[in-house]
């Protein structure tokens, strides 16, 4: 009960910085929507379908960044000199956000593919590898939910994350290495194949997704901190309450333990 009360008293994961970040993100989303839907002209070949380019590539990039950051944090956790639960939390948070953006990528790609290509889905290298990327990182998130010692679990998950993230560059280069229905790179080349308002809107969409990613990451990381705290202190409180009910005092209690014990001892004295 003490733990539940403490959780309810907690003010959440937001503070002034996240509120400003959220506000900037909201403004950027509105600007991107205005540029993408009103200002930017239709495409010569794709017509109005081109407007999905202001959603889909940025989502894919955010997905890659999420999985890349997860691998980086996992490597930092595995490296003995930098080992810290913070890296493990960052890996968990970024992987989860990466999965969200990966799903968004697949959904928007499918919505774009039906009218543009003529099919919702096809098993070409890019699409298959993106689906595989989603599957392996869902597996990684499932692995994080397994029980056991938190440190050994973190190590196990870090190794899996690094292996899974090897798919990211393969997925990105799939359109270059194999024949695909999916088109190749538009911007990352010496002469970009997009210009004017279309290019500007697309670049702003990348910035918008970057802010959205950062905002989500900060909140998700803080939720991870709360979960860790709940996991660590939950056991202590349960044991303390059990012992206090039996009128037993434990030496060297934690602050949480003391609070719980003092309440129980008072009750025992009254009875």
């Amino acid at each position: 009960m003490v733990m539940v009360r403490r959780m309810l008293e907690y003010r959440g994961t937001g503070d002034r910085v996240t509120r400003i970040l959220g506000l900037v993100t909201l403004v950027l989303v509105a600007v991107t929507a205005w540029l993408g839907l009103v200002v930017s002209p239709p495409d010569k070949v794709q017509g109005q379908l081109v407007r999905l380019i202001y959603v889909h590539p940025a989502a894919a990039t955010a997905c890659y960044v999420g999985f890349g950051l997860c691998a980086f944090a996992s490597l930092a956790y595995l490296w003995p000199r930098t080992r810290s639960r913070r890296w493990d939390r960052l890996a968990a948070a970024s992987a989860e956000i990466g999965v969200v953006f990966c799903i968004l990528t697949l959904v928007t790609g499918s919505i774009w593919g039906r009218p543009a290509w003529g099919v919702w889905w096809t098993w070409d290298a890019r699409l298959t590898l993106t689906a595989l990327l989603l599957a392996v990182f869902l597996g990684y998130l499932a692995l994080r939910r397994t029980g056991g010692d938190p440190d050994s679990r973190a190590k196990r998950c870090a190794v899996v994350a690094v292996v899974c993230a090897l798919l990211v560059p393969v997925d990105h280069e799939a359109t270059t290495w194999w024949q695909t229905l999916h088109q190749g790179n538009t911007i990352l080349r010496p002469n970009p194949l997009i210009h004017g308002w279309q290019l500007l809107t697309m670049l702003i969409s990348f910035v918008t997704y970057g802010f959205l990613f950062a905002w989500l990451l900060v909140h998700r990381y803080r939720v991870e901190v709360l979960e860790d705290r709940f996991e660590d202190e939950g056991y202590e409180v349960a044991i303390a309450e059990r012992r206090a009910e039996g009128g037993v005092v434990t030496i060297g209690p934690s602050p949480v333990l003391s609070e719980s014990l003092s309440v129980s001892t008072q009750k025992a004295g009254q009875s």
């Binding site: 070949v45 794709q46 290509w117 538009t186 194949l193 997009i194 308002w197 279309q198």
Partner: peptide, 19 residues
């Protein structure tokens, strides 16, 4: 029995001087 359009990676504004 199935046509899939393989559009290129280049994009051109239909009427760039619209604005």
């Amino acid at each position: 029995d199935l046509i899939m359009v393989k559009h290129s990676a280049s994009y051109t504004e239909a009427h760039p001087d619209r604005l």
